[in-house]
Amino acid sequence: MADIILHHYPTSPFSEKIRLVLGYKKLAWKSVIIPAIMPKPDVLALTGGYRKTPFMQIGNDVYCDSALICDVLEHIQPAPTLYPESNKGLARVLAQWADTTLFWAAMGYNLQPKGAASMFEGAPPEAAKAFGADRGAMSTGMTRLRPGDATAAYKSYLRRIATMLDGQDFLMGNTPCVADFAAYHPLWFSRVRVPLMAGILDATPAVLGWMDRMAALGHGQSTKLSATEAIAACAASTGSKSELEAPFGHDSDGTFQDEHGIPLGSSVTIAAETFGQEPTEGELVAATRTRYTLKRVDERAGTVHVHFPRIGYVLKAAQPA
């Protein structure tokens, strides 16, 4: 199999989620550091429009969204599992809550004025301004919690997580599952990225102990790779046997499932439902039970298959030029 390449940056919370999954599964991976804000020309060469962090590349397959990345890593390395047999559905639902509701409550608390100021302490004023403008553009149309409401919700969620840990090391038992990784990364941001705000965690010592156990999983074995090298690896994979046989990527299910009346081979766009709605346009080559795949051609990256999960993303027929 081609190398696992993670495109990320060190302070990205969703990247920390995937770095820990790679550590848990003891996988070797290549690390491409990408910009935290636009412009991101090397990112867009691979994704075609999607600009959220992280995304994962294997050959000329590009996987967007951390939930889908977890599924792909489970397919590549089934043990230890992220989805316990007795609670697969519950683990996924809890992870989805953590990646959305918990995450936005935590960020509303973390990035209130004093938290944001600490995050950019020592940086030039224009850095904070550029970051704010970038995330503002990504949040167009979203309803965001005010700091007071976010703080109240975050405290409640931390107490609920502490209750889940009563008598066990992880959220659903004595081994971590996908829900642990999803719930960990917003709290990691509080503790590591804005430590001035980390006092909110002190009221739930069980949560702090769990966070220590999660951090101890590590990040696996990574080696550095440049964006130029990653794009070249994508271009070199174009036309490979795996591409011709399985355009839906690293998944055993290629059955077409049509909910939109859009046939395969159509020109379509896919975009996130809410945060980061920049669309990716391409040819719809797969629409399985869990994901969509677009085929697109880039002058630098060659033929790229860009994969998105169904949940959280909107598929539309492309408008004629």
Rank of each mutant, 00 (worst) to 15 (best):
D298E: 13
S242D: 09
P263Y: 02
G108M: 10
Y157S: 10
D42T: 09
I58V: 13
D3H: 13
G199W: 09
L90D: 10
A150Y: 14
C234T: 05
S139F: 14
Y50S: 11
F14H: 05
A317N: 06
S86H: 13
I5M: 11
T293V: 15
V207N: 00
T238C: 08
T223K: 10
Q112W: 13
D65C: 03
H75G: 04
M211E: 03
M107H: 07
L201E: 09
I18A: 08
T223R: 10
P205H: 06
F248Y: 13
D99H: 13
V43W: 08
A286P: 00
M142W: 07
M172S: 08
H260R: 05
G141Q: 14
S15I: 00
I231F: 07
G148K: 14
A235N: 13
I34T: 03
G108Q: 03
D169Q: 07
L94H: 08
I231R: 00
G199K: 09
A127V: 15
H305T: 08
L171Q: 02
V21M: 02
H305N: 07
T255Q: 02
G276A: 11
T293K: 04
K17Y: 12
I69K: 04
S237D: 06
Y313P: 07
H7Q: 08
K114Q: 15
A133C: 07
M142K: 14
L165G: 04
R19S: 12
L94N: 09
A130N: 15
M211Y: 03
D180L: 09
Y292P: 00
P125Q: 07
P39M: 05
D251I: 02
K129Q: 14
D149R: 14
Y292S: 05
A79E: 10
L315T: 00
H185Q: 14
S226L: 02
D251Q: 05
P279W: 08
T238D: 07
P247M: 09
T163L: 08
I270D: 01
A286M: 04
P263K: 01
E283V: 15
G59H: 06
D169F: 04
K88F: 09
Q221D: 15
L68W: 03
L315I: 01
V178Y: 00
A232M: 05
V297Y: 11
Q221P: 04
F131N: 10
V194E: 03
F55G: 00
S267M: 13
E121C: 12
E74D: 05
A36N: 08
H260L: 02
S12H: 09
Q57G: 04
R146Q: 15
V32C: 01
